[in-house]
Amino acid sequence: MAVGRRPIFGEQQRFMLFLIAPAALLLLLFQVVPIAIGANASFRDWALYNPKKIWVGLAHYEAVLTDPAFLEVVLPNTFLFMVVSVFGALVVGLSLALLLNRPFWGQRLVQTILLVPLMVAPVIAAIMMRWMFNDQFGIVNAVLEGLGLEGQPWLVQRWTAFGVILLTDIWLWTPWFTLLLLAGLQSLPKEPFEAAEIDGTSTWRVFTHLTLPMLQPVIVVCVVIRAIDAFRTFDIVWTLTGGGPGRSTELFSLYAYVLAFLNLDLGRGSAAAIVGGLIILVVGIGMYRLVDRVTKS
């Protein structure tokens, strides 16, 4: 009597594949396929006004990597934005988490108010900031003039405009850091802090020698996730300044967007996107290795 072949997947494995199939299909259609199309376009002369799709090899990559605007403005702006926005939101978020970690009257109300930025879309927040820092009738200049100071053209100067962008991003992401760090603080063991209190250790030494070292894995994970996300920031910069004045506040995402959808050069825009993806891949791998080293230490 012939023995039937054993199926490759058992009933449980088939059920698991059935459950993940919709998510895998969406990932394939909206992530893998667009990346493949973009990679193909980056090797071709693919312009919407002349879509011949002629193979040009690495010409677009060479054009991007030798573009002075990309090397001298876009990349420095992007990394400066990533470092300052992440560090600023981390410092403010950690400070608020330390304050909220101690019970006080109205704590729930304060926590609810701190969550407000998480409920605001980045574009709405950027529009709000643009009106606040308007040089003619913005509330910031109105307050300065009320105090006898001179109003500033905030969004038409490079560093003041860049500062407004950073302020908006930090305001949006501080509650995210606060929530995660507060959860980390509340999960720390109480015994070391009780022993330090009995020994009369100062608050600063408790923070630097107990809280920070024990909270370090949570901080590193938050920084890694936020830094990768900050590299691709587009919405608030486009809404606030459009990369201006000139191109002085242009970040990487705007650079690729302008090439592909304003200059209608999909080939070069795709090459810029691939270059940016490779850069953030290298940065992400380095950060994840840092996370692994910290968690094992």
Rank of each mutant, 00 (worst) to 15 (best):
V3F: 08
G4D: 13
I8K: 13
I8R: 15
Q12C: 11
M16P: 01
M16L: 12
M16D: 12
A21D: 11
L26K: 08
A41V: 12
W46S: 03
K52N: 12
I54V: 15
A63F: 09
A69T: 15
L75H: 00
P76K: 06
F81N: 05
V86R: 07
G88K: 03
L90V: 04
L94C: 06
F104I: 10
R108F: 10
V110D: 04
Q111G: 14
I113R: 08
V116N: 12
P117G: 11
V120F: 05
P122Q: 05
A125H: 06
I127C: 03
D135I: 00
D135S: 09
Q136S: 04
Q136K: 11
F137H: 08
I139G: 08
V140G: 07
N141Q: 01
L147F: 13
T160R: 09
G163K: 01
G163S: 04
T168Y: 04
I170W: 01
W171P: 09
W176C: 08
F177S: 02
L179I: 15
G184H: 07
E191Q: 12
P192V: 00
F193A: 04
A195R: 02
R205H: 07
V206A: 12
T208F: 11
M214R: 07
L215P: 02
V218G: 01
I225G: 05
I228H: 05
D229M: 09
F234W: 01
D235M: 03
L240D: 00
G243W: 00
P245H: 10
P245C: 03
T249S: 03
L251I: 11
A260M: 06
R268I: 12
R268L: 09
G269D: 09
L278Q: 05
I280Y: 00
L281G: 11
V282Y: 04
L290I: 08
T295G: 07
